[in-house]
Amino acid sequence: MNDNFEPLIIGFCCNWCAYSGADLAGVSRLQYPTSLRIIRVMCSGMVHPNLVIDALQKGVDGVLVGG
């Protein structure tokens, strides 16, 4: 893996906690890499396993489920 590798990560984040946390990171101006694409869900419980597997199969480098 070369040093310039930049992963693409999909984050399924619960509206009530992880997604709010990501907002709070913004309000607090915490800086982090641009690799994450957050998808808002109403609860991490709604993230069907197929969504995760599907994303990985299609080439995403990582999946984060936050809830």
Partner: peptide, 14 residues
């Protein structure tokens, strides 16, 4: 938040 709708977001991200 249908599976197809979430899936469309995943596809679009990729």
């Amino acid at each position: 938040f249908k599976l197809e709708q979430i899936s469309a977001q995943v596809n679009a991200a990729l």
